[in-house]
Design a protein around this nucleic acid. Structure first.
Lengths: 233, 233
DNA sequence: AGCGATAGTATTTTCGAAAATATGGTTGAA
DNA sequence: TTCAACCATATTTTCGAAAATACTATCGCT
């Protein structure tokens, strides 16, 4: 069978557009595409080897997630970061996550509980191997995301789960900034274990308290050390 | 100046794609495009007079809002409706709206208070004119939306406001269904007045209680009278 | 100099054809 | 009859050129 221009590797999704969406999302949350940077089609066409329409579709997707902002007739740019945005985002995340973890604890069955246990175990294995600096280890990031997803996995609310996921992605850039700023490493592993224990122990009140603090603590760190680095507008 | 094929009326946004997004969103929430209906490009091209790429962008937008679902390589369809979806949606809306109205009451200044008063006044004027059946009056719908937006307008949380708006749109189809099913008209005007009074009276607890009941009541009505009409999957 | 008009350039937005993929039906062998 | 393989058709996805719009720099006037 012929290999044509249309035939190419599609790592993430089935369509090229969804593949590019994934790749671009990754470059935005790792700040390889800088906050506020203009996204010109000519440049993007070179970087991603796709046409206008395909890139446009990817950008539209990311704009809906809040990682990109579209100004009509004036193109797209990477969503800027700011202290105000971080605070707003954190509030939204805590509101939703607290509700979801409570309902997950109420509804969760055996399979859910096993999922929580195994995902924290996997996370621990990666942390054990990579010793200290697992902050920008991609494997750790995946395991970390999956652990948090497992906690709320039994909430039974597709709508809020989708929103939660999108907010989690938006927070990734701030997590990266926070990790770099922090003078001494944070005991994330301990927080995760406590969270896991409260959750599988069905102690909803404690789990809610812990997850709220867990989310808030990244924000507090950025506020403490970076209030001048990123504008507050 | 020449009128070419590109030159055309753009009612809502600056770009054709955003215009079509608006028009299609409207046709979906009014159920002129039926829940679950396949959206084929050839058909859409005729209806909206736009090209593949442009339609694709509009559909991508609506998919992000949850009014359309995309199945990769197999096209787009209008998001189906179901009792499960309505219940899920209602839960999410109450969680968010209750938080936003509380914070709006905390933060709201004089201008905000005036906005609430004037928007309910406008709503009352329309209700007075159209007598009984203002349920599918477009003017009433706009005024109704703007009244509810005014209540939460001072919350100071762009992220949650955006999510709220998207969920409000998604609920519109169920509101329409509910209105048709209801055996006797509901005293929405009374509910709105009570909500306004509690809000400008800065009685956060009462406002939260009232808005939660207000949202829940549409859902209860659908559950009561339409549990067989729309499947529960 | 200051400033609005304007021409030229850069960039985004839209289009419709062409490629890739899915769907549906038919054939032929077990 | 059943079922896999295959062709024909329907549909989606992608492309790159062309149109519309925004941006920039230059010119001419006060």
């Amino acid at each position: 069978m012929n290999v044509t221009a249309f035939n190419r590797r599609k790592e993430f999704g089935k369509t090229l557009a969804s593949d590019i969406t994934h790749r671009m999302r990754n470059e935005i949350v790792t700040c390889r595409l800088k906050p506020g940077e203009m996204l010109k089609f000519d440049t993007l066409r070179l970087s991603y080897g796709a046409s206008f329409s395909t890139l446009r579709e990817a950008l539209t997707c990311l704009a809906a997630e809040g990682l990109v902002v579209a100004e009509e007739q004036r193109g797209f740019k990477v969503a800027p970061i700011s202290l105000a945005d971080l605070i707003d985002l954190t509030h939204a995340r805590i509101l939703i996550e607290v509700d979801l973890i409570r309902r997950s604890i109420e509804n969760g069955n055996d399979d859910w509980e096993i999922g929580v246990i195994s995902s924290i175990h996997r996370l621990g294995m990666i942390e054990g191997r990579a010793a200290e600096d697992y902050a920008d280890n991609p494997d750790w990031k995946v395991a970390h995301r999956e652990f948090h997803e497992s906690l709320v996995g039994a909430c039974g609310s597709p709508t809020l789960l989708g929103i939660r996921q999108s907010l989690f992605e938006r927070a990734e850039r701030y997590r990266n900034i926070s990790a770099r700023l922090r003078p001494r490493p944070r005991d994330k592993a301990g927080e995760h274990r406590a969270l896991m224990k409260a959750t599988v122990g069905r102690d909803a009140d404690r789990a809610r308290e812990l997850i709220a603090r867990h989310i808030q603590s990244t924000t507090d760190n950025v506020i403490k050390y970076a209030s001048d680095l990123i504008g507050d507008g």
